[in-house]
């Protein structure tokens, strides 16, 4: 009796086909994940909007980088190794130094925004820094140093957030479960790094 079944397809070359596809994908794709420091640029200046209110001098942490990659932190020569500690000290101001940033309690502030009121409810009456970091660089500053400074400033803020999260919720900031808690801490310790227009003192080499 003749079998009615179709003859079996030879699958021996299946491995070769799969290999070919595999090699094609290996060649045409990249594995690198995109990582980096995310920042928001300030919106373009609009002449019709009123200038933002002046910030008190003691609340500004100014970091200047010149064309030789030297730092000027709060009008004194600075060092990148100590920048992180200095930033933390400025923002936390543990000894209530009048030259460092103001630390009003939530309840002491005259007005709270919607976000701040939420943070007040979740975190309780804590001291929140009014400090703003101002970063200015020269056209001749090297990108590497600029990124290092940005990184140290971000690291200082992340450390403060971590400490606050541990103090209030008992876990580190990254391990917080709820989005509201994270948002509250982000509001209490904002990443306020403003960038001034760059100078061109060192010459554009």
């Amino acid at each position: 009796m003749i079998s009615k079944q179709a003859p079996e397809v030879n699958a021996g070359s299946m491995a070769d086909i799969a290999f070919l596809l595999l090699i094609f994908f290996l060649v045409t794709t990249t594995m690198d994940v995109d990582k980096g420091l995310t920042r928001m640029l300030p919106p373009p200046l609009d002449p019709s909007t009123p200038p933002p209110p002046e910030i008190k001098n003691r609340n500004v942490f100014s970091v200047l980088i010149n064309s030789r990659d030297q730092l000027l932190v709060k009008n004194a020569p600075g060092n990148i190794e100590t920048l992180r500690e200095q930033t933390k000290e400025f923002l936390l101001n543990p000894n209530n130094d009048p030259s460092l940033s103001e630390q009003p309690l939530f309840s002491e502030r005259s007005s709270l925004s919607e976000k701040e009121r939420l943070a007040y409810e979740i975190l309780g009456d804590i001291r929140v820094s009014r400090g703003v970091i101002s970063l200015q660089n020269d056209r001749g500053t090297s990108y590497d140093v600029y990124i290092k400074v940005q990184n140290e400033l971000a690291a200082a803020i992340n450390e403060i957030r971590n400490e606050l999260a541990v103090e209030i919720f008992g876990v580190e900031f990254d391990k917080l479960r709820s989005e509201e808690q994270m948002e509250a801490i982000r509001t209490a310790v904002p990443m306020r790094i403003s960038e001034a227009e760059p100078k061109d003192v060192g010459g554009n080499k």
Binding site: D34, K35, G36, L37, T38, R39, M40, L41, P42, P43, P44, I147, Q150, N151
Partner: peptide, 11 residues
């Protein structure tokens, strides 16, 4: 008005 930027770095 492309305000969100990311400085690409290695970790």
């Amino acid at each position: 008005n492309a305000l969100r930027i990311n400085y690409s770095t290695r970790q």
